[in-house]
Amino acid sequence: MVTETAALAEARRLAASVPDPELPMLTIADLGILRDVSVSGRRVVVSLTPTYSGCPALAEMRRDVAARLTAAGFADVEVRTVLSPPWSTDLISADGRRKLAEAGLAPPRSRGINPGGRPPGTPRTTTADPVPLTLFATGPPVACPRCGSADTLVTASFSGTACKDLRRCRACSEPFEHVKEV
C-alpha cells in the first residue's frame, strides 16, 4: 500500500503550497498559519490559525486547501480552525520574510514572541500595552525594502489591508508597504 507516511508528505506538500490571496508571494506555510496536517487512511485534517479576527483571506485559504487535497484524491478533507496560541508575525519564516522584501514589502520586525506560547504558569508582562502607543514609544526603524535606508516614516497606519501600513522612504522617496507586527 501507499504508506500513510507518503500520503502525509503529499498532503503536507499540497496544503503548504496554498498561497495567501492578499500576500500572494507567500504560502500559508511561509506565513506560519499552517498549524498541522494529519492523515488517517484517506482522511486528512488540516489545522489553520487565523491572522486577524476579520481577515477575509482565511475563508479563501480554507477553500483552497480543501480543493487542492480533494483534487489530489483525498476523499475526506477537514479544515479546522485553531485559535490558540494566537498567530504572530514572528511565525513568518525566514523564507517568507525574504519573499516579502523581494516583492517590495518591508517584513515585520521581531516581537520576540515565543511561537509555542508562554510556558504554563509564567505571568504575562504585556497586559497594558501589547503594542505601545507610538506617540510615546517607537520600535526599531523599518528599513526601506528598495534602498535599505532606515530613514522611513509612516504615512498611513492602515494600508490596503489591516496587516500592513503605508510608509515612505526619505532617502529614495519611494512609498512602500510594511507588514505590521502582531
Partner: peptide, 17 residues
C-alpha cells in the same frame, strides 16, 4: 481567552490610530 488574545493586538492598533 483565545478570541481575546487575537483581538488585543488589533485593538492596540485601533487605539494607536
Amino acid at each position: 481567552a483565545a478570541v481575546a488574545a487575537i483581538g488585543v493586538r488589533e485593538l492596540a492598533y485601533h487605539r494607536d490610530y
